[in-house]
């Protein structure tokens, strides 16, 4: 009893054991859950490769004997969103146009603010930090209407700059906290040594801190790119119909079915929309986990 794997602690190396029934149960549960998590991905892929008659006649579990990429081409190039029939590629490029500037601006502002708060404290910086902390938890929807008024007043409502501005604003509190905590965790001697050598605010940031902070910049980029790419609410409110991001286009394509739903095209469009964040996830690995753990709390 005392030697069975289930009774062993979670840490420390240990010699290989024979397969016991406990191991069997552990792997059985893990694989069973893995199947639940993989099932929708499997369904998405096989559905996108079928033609519409096979979907109507066939079984959702069974892959097609005659796979075709027609649905993929249609989803990318000619699926209708209710306004026009140019496929989801329009949304793809809009999402790029929204994501790239929002990511760059928010990381630039947040890293500088975090650096100021961590290393150059000023009179109200502690109080400011607490307000920042609270801000990152307020549900977005509470501030949506005030921001509609603000962007209308600025004359940019329903344009690309508006949605970029909104994404930048809502990314800031969390990113600033992330950078502030990271810079505060760097050894204080480093900062003092640079000061003694005569380096100023900008020199320390760009020549000392930024080069050694690549992990946190990576986490910030992953957090922002996936977060902004996956957003729906801000895109639909602030971007305006010509700048709708990919998620909004996907929703419109799925909902604008004329003459019966084309599930194969819908699923191809769905995979295409999920492809960018999935690629980031598979490439970045542990940075992604750190990023989402930090990002999960945001409003």
């Amino acid at each position: 009893m005392a030697n069975s794997p289930l009774l062993d602690g979670p840490s420390g190396a240990r010699p290989q054991k024979f397969i016991t029934w406990q191991r069997f149960v552990v792997y059985g549960c893990l694989i069973g859950c893995a199947l639940f998590f993989l099932f929708p991905l499997y369904i998405m892929i096989i559905t996108s490769l079928k033609n519409i008659d096979e979907i109507r006649a066939g079984n959702i579990f069974v892959p097609t004997m005659h796979p075709t990429l027609d649905a993929w081409f249609k989803a990318w190039d000619s699926a209708c969103t209710g306004l026009y029939c140019e496929g989801i590629k329009v949304g793809f490029w809009n999402s790029i146009k929204i994501t790239v500037p929002s990511t760059i601006v928010s990381i630039l502002v947040a890293s500088l603010t975090g650096y100021s708060l961590a290393n150059w404290p000023f009179k109200f910086s502690e109080g400011f930090f607490s307000v920042l902390l609270l801000s990152s938890f307020i549900p977005y929807i509470v501030m949506v209407y005030p921001l509609v008024i603000i962007t209308r007043y600025m004359g940019i409502f329903s344009t690309l700059p508006a949605v970029v501005l909104v994404h930048t604003i809502f990314g800031l509190p969390l990113l600033t906290l992330l950078f502030r905590n990271y810079f505060a965790s760097l050894p204080g001697e480093l900062f003092k040594a640079a000061r003694v050598d005569g380096a100023g605010y900008w020199q320390i940031f760009f020549l000392v801190f930024a080069p050694m902070s690549m992990p946190i910049f990576t986490v910030a980029v992953i957090l922002q790119v996936t977060g902004i790419w996956n957003d729906f609410l801000f895109g639909v409110i602030y971007a305006g119909p010509t700048n709708y991001p990919m998620t909004v286009q996907l929703n419109n394509i799925v909902n604008s079915a004329t003459g019966g739903k084309a599930y194969n095209v819908d699923m191809a469009a769905t995979i295409l929309t999920g492809l960018v964040p999935l690629a980031i996830y598979f490439i970045s690995g542990k940075y992604f986990v750190r990023g989402i753990a930090a990002g999960a709390v945001k409003g």
Binding site: A34, F37, D231, F232, T247, T273, G274, P277, V289, I292
Partner: peptide
Amino acid sequence: YLYPFALSFIV
């Protein structure tokens, strides 16, 4: 187990 978290709620 984690890949669904990378996806948009719309997806």
